[in-house]
Design a protein around this nucleic acid. Structure first.
Lengths: 245, 245
DNA sequence: ACAAAAGTGTTATCAGTACACCCATGC
DNA sequence: GCATGGGTGTACTGATAACACTTTTGT
């Protein structure tokens, strides 16, 4: 028995990958390319998010995880459903119409948008059939459908979320330096943080565990490595009801 | 030309109404009742959220606003799309199946859930054809479909949101006392707040404007009235990047 | 005059901010 | 020995938290 697609419902995945070396927050995108058969004219040449129709027998979360796995091979990655996009005209730009002609797409498709957080290096983009490519969130290419809007809204949500929840560690390797964390915050939020104050703050957290280990293979003074203990965090976590209006 | 419904897509609206007098955060629900024709047996007797299919030619936001207006007559009410619910089995409890037999519902319907914030008193539930009823968020009745889950997730989102954004004022009349605001926070968050500290904090905000007016018709000392100036708030607002992990 | 809710002040503690130099290491 | 990034301390400021009594008004 074949698995049935829901023709007017999809998930789209904003895959955020953080690159510790270049200190860059990236988005994984797939090329969309089409030329006319007769005239060698380029009809469509841009990028889109990875996404696919939801199947009849799966939850939305399962659908998003399936799409991520299909593209990256990865499972158990932090994900968040952040918004549904369903404007009647969201797939109706001229280029999108050309593209959709080739596909089995309902013109009024609602997409449930997710974002994922991982390390850029964890995705093999070599030999990947989808030819995905990383783009800095600050230098996005031309995007199809309403995917630019989806990415920007995902980014806004991420910026708010990373202030409240320890999701920054989803973007960093298991062992990281304090400066890695600071760099990640600075890239994502586009701000400068005072290193001394930031260090103090972080090192005082009981869930930031100092390891008996230092960086290796760096050409300067190797830094102390730390890990994030989710166990400790969960145990000590208590909602604070600080009203910040 | 008739407006076409999308058969597998709906919006559901969690209408939160705050009652300043009883200091209660309420949810507006609609009765779902069905008895079998032959045996006078009650087949379905519970409550559901207001909701409806999305139309082909409208955005999701428009759809939610339409549903709210249909039930309450109100427009321009604070609303937030907070999550999509689309589990394959979300409408497949026995009672839901009985109910759906009478309706034109796709069994795999995805719903985009919104919540609205208003004052309980702004909705006329007398002579309303839908016979809606207010329930305290703490004493919800038996609910159909997955609507209990939807309400609880809306409430969680509201609790977080009201700490960060001045949405508390959507739930209060234009003129309110400091204690009204405190009571609202306490009801929503289920916490106790120190009155002196809270007063000082609020009165020092430039967007909390003291009016030349006091309560009238109260049987005790009438309190000073204030209003919230969205203009001032928007002008002085600047994102703070406090990392609270 | 009394009941009820409004309104008021001080102190201690904690967290955030600003700021500049020394240190350890690899090369 | 030197260049590079890692790592450190202090003083100030502002916000929060704890805490109990007086004042105003309507009845």
């Amino acid at each position: 028995m074949e698995i049935k697609k829901i023709p007017n419902l999809s998930v789209d995945c904003v895959v955020f990958g953080y690159d510790t070396d270049t200190k860059s927050l990236n988005v994984l995108l797939i090329k969309r390319y089409l030329e006319s058969k007769k005239e060698d004219e380029i009809l469509v040449d841009d990028y889109v998010l990875t996404g696919y129709h939801v199947f009849e027998n799966e939850t939305l979360d399962e659908s998003a995880s399936r799409v991520l796995k299909e593209l990256t091979g990865l499972t158990n990655i932090y994900k968040k459903q952040f918004k549904a996009f369903g404007n009647p005209d969201r797939l109706k730009n001229p280029k999108d119409l050309i593209w959709i002609k080739n596909e089995n797409f309902n013109l009024r498709t609602i997409t449930i948008a997710y974002y994922f957080l991982l390390k850029t290096e964890d995705v093999s983009i070599k030999n990947n059939v989808y030819k995905p490519k990383w783009f800095s969130i600050n230098k996005l290419p031309e995007l199809g459908f309403d995917h630019q809007q989806i990415i920007l809204e995902a980014y806004e949500d991420l910026k708010i979320k990373c202030l409240q929840d320890p999701i920054i560690f989803e973007l960093l390797p298991d062992k990281f330096t304090i400066n890695d964390v600071q760099d990640a915050y600075q890239s994502i939020l586009g701000i400068e943080i005072d290193n001394r104050n930031f260090r103090r703050k972080l090192i005082n957290k009981k869930y930031i565990v100092s390891l008996d280990e230092k960086q290796v293979g760096v050409s300067k003074k190797p830094a102390q490595l730390y890990m994030f203990s989710k166990d400790v965090y969960d145990k000590m976590f208590q909602k604070n009801y600080l009203i910040s209006i």
